[in-house]
Amino acid sequence: MGLGSRDYFRDGDGDMEWNSDAPAVRIIIITTLVALILQLVWTVPVPGGLDRESLLDRWLQMDTSAVLSGQIWRLVTYAFLHGLSPWHFIFNMLFLWWFGPTLERMYGTREFIAFYLSAAVAAALGGVAWDLSMQDSSKIVGASGAVLATTMLYTMHFPRQPIGLFFGLLTVEMRVLMAFLVFLDGFYALAQWGGRMGGTGVAHPAHLLGVAFGWAYFHFNWKITGLLNIFESLQERWKVYRARKRLKVFSPEPSSPLEEDVDRILAKIHEQGEASLTPKEREILTKASRAYRERR
Results as ranks from 00 to 15, higher is better:
residue 7 D to C: 03
residue 11 D to M: 08
residue 13 D to M: 02
residue 14 G to N: 04
residue 17 E to F: 00
residue 20 S to Q: 15
residue 23 P to V: 12
residue 25 V to N: 04
residue 44 V to Q: 14
residue 45 P to H: 03
residue 45 P to W: 03
residue 48 G to Y: 01
residue 50 L to T: 10
residue 51 D to M: 02
residue 52 R to W: 00
residue 53 E to H: 07
residue 53 E to Q: 13
residue 56 L to Y: 06
residue 67 V to I: 13
residue 68 L to P: 02
residue 73 W to A: 04
residue 74 R to T: 07
residue 75 L to C: 01
residue 81 L to D: 01
residue 85 S to W: 13
residue 86 P to S: 08
residue 91 F to I: 15
residue 92 N to H: 12
residue 93 M to C: 10
residue 95 F to Y: 05
residue 96 L to F: 01
residue 101 P to F: 08
residue 104 E to K: 09
residue 105 R to C: 01
residue 108 G to Q: 12
residue 110 R to W: 14
residue 127 G to A: 12
residue 132 L to P: 12
residue 136 D to K: 15
residue 140 I to R: 06
residue 143 A to W: 06
residue 146 A to G: 01
residue 147 V to Q: 08
residue 158 F to E: 13
residue 161 Q to P: 00
residue 161 Q to D: 05
residue 163 I to E: 08
residue 167 F to M: 04
residue 170 L to Q: 13
residue 170 L to A: 14
residue 171 T to Y: 09
residue 173 E to M: 14
residue 174 M to S: 15
residue 185 D to N: 15
residue 188 Y to R: 05
residue 189 A to N: 10
residue 196 R to Q: 13
residue 204 H to M: 03
residue 206 A to M: 11
residue 206 A to G: 14
residue 206 A to S: 15
residue 207 H to D: 11
residue 208 L to M: 10
residue 210 G to N: 06
residue 211 V to Q: 04
residue 214 G to D: 05
residue 218 F to N: 02
residue 219 H to C: 00
residue 222 W to G: 06
residue 223 K to L: 04
residue 223 K to T: 09
residue 224 I to M: 03
residue 225 T to P: 05
residue 227 L to E: 08
residue 230 I to F: 07
residue 230 I to C: 03
residue 234 L to Q: 13
residue 237 R to M: 07
residue 238 W to Q: 08
residue 239 K to N: 05
residue 248 K to Y: 01
residue 253 E to K: 12
residue 256 S to W: 02
residue 263 D to W: 10
residue 266 L to N: 14
residue 266 L to Q: 13
residue 272 Q to S: 12
residue 274 E to Q: 04
residue 280 K to V: 13
residue 284 I to E: 07
residue 285 L to W: 03
residue 288 A to H: 04
residue 294 E to S: 10
